[in-house]
Simulated scan of single mutants.
Amino acid sequence: MITTGAITSQASEHGLALRGVVAPEPDQTVPDWAQSIVLFGPDEPAFWEIFSASPEYSDGQADPLDRWSDRIAHSLAKDWGGAVLLPSAGPPYPPFLKWAVQSKHAWSSPVGPLVHAEAGLFISYRFAVALPQPLEAPAPAAKPCDSCAAPCTTSCPVGALGPDHMYDTASCKNYISSPEGVDCLQNGCLVRRACPVATNFLRLPEQSAFHMAAFLKN
Rank of each mutant, 00 (worst) to 15 (best):
M1D: 15
A6I: 11
A6C: 10
I7V: 13
T8K: 15
Q10E: 15
Q10I: 12
S12V: 07
E13I: 08
L16E: 02
G20R: 05
V21G: 05
P24Y: 01
E25T: 00
P26M: 02
V30I: 15
P31S: 06
A34E: 01
Q35H: 14
V38W: 03
G41F: 03
D43F: 06
P45S: 01
A46Q: 13
F47Y: 11
W48S: 01
W48K: 02
W48M: 02
F51G: 00
S52T: 05
S52H: 02
S54N: 09
E56L: 03
G60D: 00
G60K: 05
A62D: 04
P64R: 00
P64C: 05
D70M: 10
D70G: 09
R71V: 02
R71K: 09
R71Y: 03
A73I: 08
H74L: 10
A77F: 03
K78N: 12
K78S: 15
G82H: 11
A83E: 07
V84K: 07
L86V: 06
L86H: 04
G90A: 06
G90E: 07
Y93H: 12
P95G: 04
P95F: 00
F96W: 00
L97E: 13
K98I: 01
K104E: 14
W107N: 01
S108E: 13
S109M: 10
P110K: 08
P110S: 06
V111K: 10
L114I: 04
L114C: 05
V115H: 08
H116L: 08
A117E: 14
L121R: 10
F122Y: 13
F122K: 00
Y125H: 15
Y125L: 12
R126M: 12
F127I: 02
F127E: 04
A130M: 12
P132N: 11
E136A: 15
E136R: 10
P140F: 09
A142E: 15
P144K: 14
C145S: 09
S147M: 09
S147W: 09
A149Y: 07
A150K: 12
C152T: 09
T154H: 14
P163F: 03
P163H: 13
P163E: 09
D164I: 07
M166P: 06
M166V: 15
D168C: 07
T169E: 13
C172P: 03
K173A: 00
K173M: 11
I176A: 00
P179F: 05
E180K: 15
E180L: 11
G181W: 00
D183E: 15
C184K: 08
C184R: 08
L185C: 05
V197E: 11
V197W: 05
T199W: 11
L204H: 04
L204C: 00
L204M: 01
P205V: 03
P205H: 04
Q207H: 02
S208W: 06
A209N: 06
A209S: 04
F210A: 00
F210R: 03
H211Y: 14
A213L: 08
A213R: 12
A214Y: 04
F215L: 04
K217Y: 03
K217V: 04
N218R: 05
